[in-house]
């Protein structure tokens, strides 16, 4: 394997390759986000024996573009009593962490460009998993600030609920993947993918089924998807934290929700399903896994009713947290033996 491309041995090529990787990942992410909205409407439509969007373009395929255009030309309303800075900042604070997280997800093995080895990953951090957890923790600021800044009781309730929910479930999510990096003996996502290489049965989903289940469910709760969508529970809180938002700011919240879905799907695929490993070229494997988890998330939305707030707290603190701790103990015992 030739030398790793870095800023010191060929700065111009390094910067060019970096920009190309960032651009590629960003464009793919935005495309998935746009078409996830279409897929969600179409899939849920068929699950409820409706057709979903059909009018815009063939099979309604231009629907996301039409939606985007519509939201772009809507009037941008800021409530009179709103705290202006926080109100404008909130949608960005929720979208940016979601997008940055994708930087640490590896989407393929190494390739050789111009005589140097280039890893197919934007940034291989030593502490990849902790970075993901930190960014998830930052994401909640957007929701809480949106709820508080709108000066609306429904928004505030949504924001507070979201804070409680994310703080409770962050713990269980973090503890459940401790077992994964006990097995992989590294915090870097690249190292974790390497630890799962070889046969399909090296994937951590087989050695860590409990951690996989706990992490999947807590992640769904952290990104506020059904059945944990209490922050925007439309039957009781109008639209929760984004009630007062309109135009592109609302579109940012919308994009952030789907971007978070993509991120969670990508992280779970990387941690438990071997990331880019599989029968096809690396990127396609990862995309297939992401699409599978996105489908499951949409499927769950069509299937489950929303949990009650006390059920949510009960599950977070009294079910998932002990399960995650138990899993760590068992994994530790097995490693030592």
């Amino acid at each position: 394997m030739p030398e790793m491309l870095s800023l010191s041995n060929d700065p111009i090529l390094f910067i060019a390759v970096m920009l190309a990787k960032i651009l590629a990942v960003f464009v793919v992410l935005l495309l998935i986000v746009a078409y996830a909205t279409y897929a969600e409407r179409k899939i849920i439509g068929h699950m409820q024996t409706r057709l979903g969007p059909t009018m815009t373009g063939p099979l309604g395929l231009l629907q996301p573009i039409a939606d985007g255009l519509k939201l772009f030309f809507k009037e941008d309303i800021i409530p009179a009593q709103a705290s202006k800075v926080a109100f404008i900042l909130a949608p960005m604070m929720i979208l940016v962490p979601a997008f940055i997280t994708v930087a640490v997800v590896p989407f393929g093995g190494d390739v050789v460009i111009g005589g140097y080895t280039v890893p197919l990953q934007i940034a291989d951090l030593d502490v990849g998993i902790l970075f993901i957890l930190a960014m998830e923790g930052l994401g909640v600021y957007g929701i809480v600030l949106a709820g508080w800044a709108s000066n609306n009781k429904y928004s505030l309730l949504g924001g507070i609920r979201s804070a409680a929910q994310v703080i409770s479930y962050e713990l269980a999510a973090g503890l459940s993947i401790v077992a994964v990096f006990m097995l992989a003996e590294t915090l870097s996502l690249r190292g974790i993918v390497e630890a799962q290489s070889g046969s399909m049965f090296n994937w951590f989903v087989f050695s860590q089924p409990l951690a996989f289940c706990v992490f999947f469910i807590t992640s769904v709760a952290e990104i506020n998807r059904v059945p944990f969508d209490l922050p925007e529970a439309e039957t009781e809180l109008v639209s929760g934290f984004c009630t007062e938002y309109s135009s592109m700011k609302y579109a940012l919240f919308f994009m952030a929700e789907y971007a978070n879905m993509v991120v969670v799907a990508a992280v779970i695929s990387t941690l438990f399903l071997g990331g880019p490993a599989g029968p096809f070229p690396g990127v396609i494997n990862l995309l297939l896994k992401i699409f599978f988890f996105m489908f499951v998330l949409i499927w769950m939305r069509a299937t489950f009713p929303r949990v009650r707030y006390d059920q949510l707290m009960f599950m977070g603190w009294k079910v998932f947290l002990p399960l995650a701790l138990l899993n760590i103990v068992i994994t530790g015992a097995v490693i030592v033996l």
Binding site: D126, V127, L130, L133, A134, G137, L138, L187
Partner: peptide, 10 residues
Amino acid sequence: APFMAAIQIM
């Protein structure tokens, strides 16, 4: 010290 950085943010 990336570990410190991640813990700092978390």
